[in-house]
């Protein structure tokens, strides 16, 4: 499990087809994302942004080509160990009103990838939990069941869960979709600061509308109808 230095994500001529679907969702994707950068992926609905992210994480396996996450081929048996260094905020995060786990419990789950009941939570947990929850204005909601929080509040809880894992690589799929303008700016600021503070960490953000993040992005990938149509490096 020795990761190759220098590349957070590498996709080589990757094709993905969903089972049952005739036409591939993404085709012939070549992409290399280094450590320590903020990458923005944009494109219209159905372009293949979510597919691209889940391919990077190895949740979807290429039918052709190879995908490497932190230097490890996603087809490798032990890819799940590499994923422990990554975080993901999915696009379809909403939970139904009867979901009973509290917001705090949901955040705590982010640290359970290989925890057993007797393992203590890391000592920074409580501090960072309060820090991020305060920043995102969900501190008073932590003891409430996640299902009764509003969409935006739930999305913030998932963002806290992603950050508290201290990931080497942070995947955010439309993290602004349910947030108000103020919160969008706050999340942008938090993510930008996270990358600055945890040197070498990368973030990959999917967003088809919110442009503020563009100012901070080092790489902007545009995807359209399953193919990358433009890769722009800023600064």
């Amino acid at each position: 499990m020795q990761p190759i230095r220098g590349e957070a994500v590498r996709l080589e001529n990757v094709w993905i087809t969903y089972s049952g679907a005739g036409k591939p969702a993404i085709r012939n994707i070549n992409l290399s994302i280094p450590f320590g950068v903020l990458t923005l992926i944009r494109g219209p609905n159905g372009a293949g942004k979510t597919t691209l992210i889940e391919t990077c994480l190895g949740l979807l396996k290429p039918i052709k080509g190879n995908a490497y996450l932190l230097g490890v081929n996603t087809k490798d048996e032990r890819i799940f160990e590499v994923r422990r260094k990554c975080s993901y905020v999915p696009q379809d995060f909403m939970k139904p009103p009867y979901e009973h786990y509290t917001a705090k419990k949901v955040i705590e789950m982010g640290l359970s990838s290989n925890r057993v009941i007797t393992d203590p939570l890391p000592d920074y947990f409580q501090y960072e939990l309060e820090f991020y929850a305060k920043e995102l204005d969900v501190l008073s909601l932590l003891e409430k069941p996640i299902g009764i929080l509003s969409g935006g509040q739930q999305q913030k809880v998932f963002i806290v869960r992603a950050l508290i894992r201290r990931p080497k690589l942070l995947f955010l799929d439309e993290p602004f979709s349910s947030l108000d303008k103020e919160s969008r700016e706050k999340v942008t600021e938090i993510v930008v600061n996270y990358i600055k503070k945890h040197r070498g960490s990368s973030a990959i953000i999917v967003s088809h509308s919110f442009s503020k993040i563009e100012e901070y992005a080092d790489i902007i990938v545009t995807i359209n109808d399953g193919v990358i149509t433009d890769i722009r490096f800023q600064r």
């Binding site: 889940e54 994480l57 949740l59 799940f80 160990e81 590499v82 994923r83 422990r84 260094k85 990554c86 975080s87 993901y88 999915p90 979901e99 786990y101 949901v106 789950m109 982010g110 359970s112 990838s113 290989n114 894992r165 995947f171």
Partner: peptide, 13 residues
């Protein structure tokens, strides 16, 4: 809670 998210976070589902 969320099988896909657990898998993405490296739980050995």
């Amino acid at each position: 809670f969320d099988q896909k998210l657990a898998e993405a976070e490296g739980v050995n589902v």
